[in-house]
């Protein structure tokens, strides 16, 4: 452009500096501190003492905590998988509806999406408790049975799936909506049966939506502690619960930081393995 280069520098600084500082202060520095704290010790009250020890990491790699990591991973995988299986057909169906009806359905999915997950989790407590709505309905049936669901891992899974289902439906919907119908029709014109048509045409075209949906569900599920606390009675802790507990109850910040660092490294490794672009696309 017709600007002198020094002037250009100032403009770049003007737009870029605030954001850079912000990121350095509130994203990079906290993560660096977590890393630093993870090598420290604590005193009797729980204040952090600067020192260098591998003890926290030794404890992290104790089978007990490896198990917690594996369990959290499993819970996150199951939640993501169920959300995908349940959400995909619905998202696809909504995307293919005529425009006026489609918006109505979309609205219906979005209302829970924008409602606080605490409120929605709270609703499940009412439903699942022993003397709650679900058992009242079951009891009224001719074969009267009752289920003991609240404060079990099953309740946690139901809560997680319920919380994150809209996060799966919406990205898949937005992808399926842009789907070029002529391609699908071309497929069936060429004699593909619906199943192969789905595998070869529809699935690849909605792949970005599925990817985004998986990310939207998997990432928050992995660190979730509130739903587990409320529906699980804190007796099968996930990694989020253990970390939260280390910071706000057991006052072992160094150990909590070590757990956090491992979680951080896991996610960075995950992103390094998958395509970088995916993060950008979100």
């Amino acid at each position: 452009m017709n600007l002198s280069s020094s002037k250009r520098h100032w403009i770049v600084l003007f737009w870029g500096l605030p954001m850079t500082l912000w990121g350095a202060l509130f994203i990079i520095a906290p993560m660096a501190l977590l890393l630093g704290y993870s090598f420290c010790e604590r005193d009797a009250l729980g204040q952090v003492i600067w020192s260098f020890t591998w003890e926290n990491y030794q404890r992290v790699f104790d089978p007990v905590y490896l198990n917690v990591f594996i369990r959290s991973f499993l819970f996150a995988c199951i939640t993501t998988f169920v959300c995908l299986m349940v959400g995909y057909p619905a998202a696809y169906f909504i995307a293919r509806l005529p425009k006026e009806v489609r918006n109505l359905y979309l609205l219906l999915v979005m209302i829970p999406f924008w409602t606080s997950f605490l409120i929605r989790t709270y609703a499940w407590i009412t439903l699942l408790k022993s003397e709650g709505v679900l058992n009242a309905i079951l009891g009224a049936l001719p074969f009267s049975t009752s289920l003991d669901l609240l404060y079990t891992p099953m309740a946690v899974l139901i809560g997680l799936i319920y919380t994150f289902l809209p996060f799966m439906i919406l990205p898949i919907y937005s992808c399926a909506e842009k789907l070029d119908l002529s391609l699908v029709e071309a497929g069936s014109d060429l004699g593909a049966n619906p199943f192969w048509n789905f595998i070869h045409v529809i699935l690849p075209l909605t792949w970005p939506g599925i990817g985004a949906g998986i990310l939207f569900v998997f990432v928050p599920t992995f660190g979730m502690f509130a739903v587990v606390d409320l529906l699980g009675g804190s007796q099968t802790p996930l990694i989020g619960n253990v970390i939260q507990n280390q910071f706000l109850q057991a006052r072992n910040w160094p150990f909590g930081s070590a757990l956090g660092v491992i979680l951080l490294v896991m996610f960075f490794a995950l992103y390094a393995m998958t395509h970088d672009e995916e993060v950008d696309e979100r």
Partner: peptide, 19 residues
């Protein structure tokens, strides 16, 4: 109980997580 509170915290955290 001073320092021992930490030992208690650790023990209970370990036991709870090991379920």
């Amino acid at each position: 109980i001073g320092k021992k509170l930490e030992a208690i915290d650790q023990m209970v955290t370990d036991l709870k997580s090991s379920q």
